[in-house]
Amino acid sequence: MDRFSLKGRTALVTGGGRGCGLAFARGLAEAGADVAVFDVIEQSPDFSAIEKECNVRTAYYKVDVSSQDSLKAGFAQFQKDFDNKLDICVPCAGINRHTRFLDFTYDEHHDLLSINVLGLYFTAQYAAKQMIANGTRHGSIILVASMASYVAVRDQNCSAYCGTKGAVRAMCPAIAKELTEYGIRVNSISPGYVNTEMTAAFSHLVEGWKTETINKRIAEPEDIMGACVFLASDASSYMTGQDVVVDGGVTRIS
């Protein structure tokens, strides 16, 4: 079980103020890692409690990953506060839009690309540069993709979102290949239907989503947490360039 321990390591989670990002931050802290969070929302009371419950160091930074200036400033402050230490990065910040393909506007699609693809890509890049500069020995970058990169989402018009998450899954092995020489592993997680603030707007679709899963329920963020901790830890030391699907079996029975 020591191989699952993250004691002595430092993690950064974007979009960590709520939903799956908050669950990932909590899971990494419970495994012993100090955790920093980037998010555009005000600090979550639940996040502040992690420090007390897990006896680890935490920090929260208001950062917009779609803005290069904001992202650079966030990393600069994070590096200063954590003495340039970084072992784990989970770029989780993302948005969705329920809009028909024929009605989608250029600006709407640009917003998704700026956060879900560019924001994630450059978060991973800045993290990798920091890991390389400091000779990190256990570097792990965990990109957050989605079940939507495999299948169309039932009763939702989200072609642009599916495209952005497909981009995340496609870039994962390519980035992993380039970072292997630095001892940095890169994997991704593809969650299925999860009960978060993002999906709350589609509460009327939940019953239909349940019928698509093998176990007839949608996930809570904590159901995805374990995959993140596993990929961050030495327990997955031989895994890189892989996508871990945590979707209740939707992509296996669709």
Rank of each mutant, 00 (worst) to 15 (best):
Y121A: 08
I189A: 08
T164H: 10
A235L: 09
G19A: 06
R100V: 10
Q125P: 04
T180M: 12
R97V: 13
T180W: 10
A59F: 11
A128L: 05
E108C: 07
T251F: 15
K177H: 13
H109W: 15
V151C: 12
L22P: 00
E212P: 07
L71T: 03
Y150N: 06
E51M: 13
D64V: 08
R97Q: 15
Y193M: 03
P221M: 04
F38N: 00
G94C: 06
H98W: 13
N55C: 13
A200V: 03
A170N: 14
V151E: 05
R100C: 13
L112R: 05
H98N: 13
N195Q: 15
L71C: 04
E181Y: 06
V206F: 14
I95S: 11
M239D: 04
A235P: 01
F101E: 00
D234C: 09
N187E: 02
F38W: 06
F78L: 13
L22D: 00
S233P: 01
S233D: 02
A128R: 03
G16W: 15
V194E: 00
I50S: 02
V151S: 07
R169T: 03
N134I: 02
T199E: 05
F78V: 03
I214P: 03
E222D: 10
L118S: 13
D223R: 02
G139R: 09
D234T: 04
E30C: 01
I95E: 05
D223C: 02
K85I: 06
A133Y: 07
L231I: 04
S67E: 07
R9T: 05
S48I: 11
I141G: 03
G16F: 15
A167C: 14
T240K: 05
G248S: 07
A201S: 11
C54K: 10
I88M: 05
A133E: 06
C54N: 07
N96I: 13
N134H: 09
Q156H: 12
S188T: 06
I41A: 13
R217Q: 06
Y161K: 11
D107W: 11
L86E: 01
F104C: 12
D46M: 13
G226I: 00
D2N: 14
E220I: 05
Q242H: 12
A25R: 05
N116W: 14
S70C: 07
T199V: 08
S149R: 07
Q68I: 07
D2R: 15
P221W: 08
V13E: 01
M198D: 01
A174E: 13
D234K: 12
T199Y: 10
C89F: 09
G241F: 10
Y150D: 03
M198W: 10
M198N: 03
K85C: 09
P221E: 00
M239Y: 14
K85S: 11
D247F: 05
L120E: 04
G16P: 01
A59Y: 12
V37N: 01
A127R: 05
